[in-house]
Design a protein around this nucleic acid. Structure first.
Lengths: 343, 343
DNA sequence: CACTTGAACTGAAGCGCTTTAGTTCCTCAT
DNA sequence: ATGAGGAACTAAAGCGCTTCAGTTCAAGTG
């Protein structure tokens, strides 16, 4: 016989109504700031509710309002990749803090691929567990979007705006990449390589295109770009390959901090001195960039704020307003010790 | 006029009942594998439900069953600390995968401290959003537990079992720390220091006690232990202090991988060669430990499995079974390049 | 044959809210 | 005095399920 066998007697709206000597309707009005009760009564009811520690049942509310007061966030990545990416936790913290303001909960699902992601979303929506969705890690051709559209799920895209009416929260990846290239060219580098992330991801393509354009503008094409899967192993291998070339790059930009660290490590093993012989720029910033030696020059941005803006946009969408897409601040280059004048 | 203005007409149990030519009760029986319908009818109903893509509304179910089919996970840490700890995402991935089996959702809340954590839990429980809870980052004297107990929230503790009847999922931190000490002593080290995590956390205290005991057993007391907050900065400072002593340690164990990396970095800056002059052991393992040079010897365990076991225990608890506490596998020492014979 | 029995199924109550349609009562203009 | 109007509140109908008390009917029993 555990402590949990006897279900605790839980309060309902009737208890509050009885205690206040009014009908349950009156309590509902008071609670939701609707007309129908006098100011004095409203205050009395709210005081009683607070005193007794009553809060309306989410299920009952959800049932009559047809609103779950919950939004979903599905992350489609392997647990391994997730582990080292500081990005997600920070982003989630930002989303949470904004959702708390409107008493909206966050349902989370971590699945390995898009197929399961679609399953999860479909289930949630069919069960009316969520009112809306945050969609991350957009692919250029993303199988989830047509599904969401056909189901009519209100969703906010974390990525570039697309035709179709779903609002997006994004930042100018192209400008950030361009800044990095300009910075390196300014230091005298002419052989600059790019170690990109997953080629299927939209922002990878945007960044790669921007990289090509920036290099070309400086008269430095053709350019070298290597695709990877964001892991440390891939970053290390790409670096080995690049440095083994006949005319190896004097600077490499990586699409995240993990791979940049891998590159740094490989350079050390090969006896290539950073930054004297090789400059390195990380595409994401985190404590990791300050944890290695030399510290990494990185493209830095406020990920938590990114989460806040995303949540805010979704809340507006659910409120029936029609939020446009939101452009977040562009990442800025933070120069540390991994970059120097070209040899 | 956005695409989301017209609410999609959604299916209910009546639609399925009508289509199958039975009462809604029959559909409910079929759905929940309850007696009351023939096998043939059950299959027909389920086929129709699947074909039409109907799933029962979580709110309606929750209301009549008094069960939310959702559990909560509150993480009380600053976003900064969360960012670099690969632990949480892996753990969550494990929890998710197990919960998915019983169609239970995971509600997540990321808050900065215990006070807000209690608020969040109280709200969820009062609103009946959750059936149970996973409690992480236990303090030795944890303010949340009495609250949970008084509310009667079914909860699983991620940490050592305690009096009070809440099941716990834990692993033998003491044994792991002892193994690390034995390993270092076996290499000839006699001055071994410990850089501990947050002193308020229970497992920090367990590990510190085990460290003292192991050192004493080898006749190596008094011992040096430095408390920190798990951050890179604290790890770096602790290392600087330790190495500046008259008789600096020849080996240091750190309570997580981030601080071990910081220690490695500081040693490099001070010209202390690892592992020739200083051996380093990380208390958590992750890709990070393989990303630095030299790679870090670490106490490694399967964090995702840890999450799976935790979720499984909670599910059992909610099912009315009385799961005992579960002891997860003890972390094993993975020897890499950061440890060597004492100088 | 009249009957019990049990399997298969239906009807309706109830879960705890929101919301709409009343009802009551007071105030104020006519 | 009379009724219109509005503020304050109540009653009751849902929302979409689960579940329990019945109802029906075919098969089995003596």
């Amino acid at each position: 016989m555990s402590a949990y066998d006897r279900p605790v007697k839980r309060l309902t709206i009737s208890d509050i109504a009885a205690r206040a000597g009014v009908s349950i309707g009156a309590v509902s009005f008071a609670l939701n700031d609707r007309p129908g009760v006098s100011e004095a009564t409203r205050r009395r009811i709210l005081a009683i509710a607070a005193e007794m520690g009553w809060r309306p049942s989410a299920a009952a509310r959800g049932l009559s309002e047809s609103r779950a007061h919950t939004v979903g966030l599905v992350i489609a990545r392997s647990a391994d990749t997730l582990g080292v990416e500081p990005f997600f936790m920070k982003f989630i913290a930002g989303v949470e803090s904004e959702l708390a303001l409107t008493r909206t909960a966050l349902l989370l699902q971590v699945v390995p691929d898009h197929a399961r992601s679609i399953e999860a979303i479909t289930d949630w929506w069919a069960e009316r567990r969520i009112d809306g969705l945050i969609v991350m890690d957009l692919w250029a051709d993303d199988a989830r979007l047509p599904v969401l559209e056909s189901m009519g799920v209100p969703a906010v895209l974390v990525g570039r705006p697309r035709p179709g009416g779903m609002p997006a929260v994004w930042n100018d990846d192209a400008a950030a990449v361009t800044e990095a290239v300009d910075f390196l060219v300014g230091l005298g580098h002419r052989r600059i390589a790019r170690v990109a992330g997953l080629p299927a991801l939209e922002h990878t393509q945007v960044r790669t295109a921007a990289f090509h354009a920036a290099m070309e503008r400086h008269g430095l094409s053709p350019t070298t770009v290597v695709d990877t899967d964001y892991t440390w192993a891939a970053g290390a291998q790409a670096t080995r390959d690049l440095l083994a070339a006949a005319a190896p790059p004097t600077a490499i930009t990586y699409d995240n901090d993990v791979m940049a660290t891998a590159g740094l490590s490989v350079a050390g093993q090969l006896g290539v001195e950073v930054p004297r012989e090789l400059s390195i720029v990380a595409g994401d910033d985190s404590q990791l960039c300050e944890m290695v030696f030399p510290t990494l020059t990185a493209l830095s941005r406020d990920v938590q704020a990114y989460g806040v803006h995303t949540a805010r946009t979704l809340v507006e969408l659910l409120d029936g307003r029609s939020p446009g897409s939101f452009q977040d601040a562009t990442a800025r280059l933070v120069a540390r010790r991994s970059t120097a004048a070209a040899p």
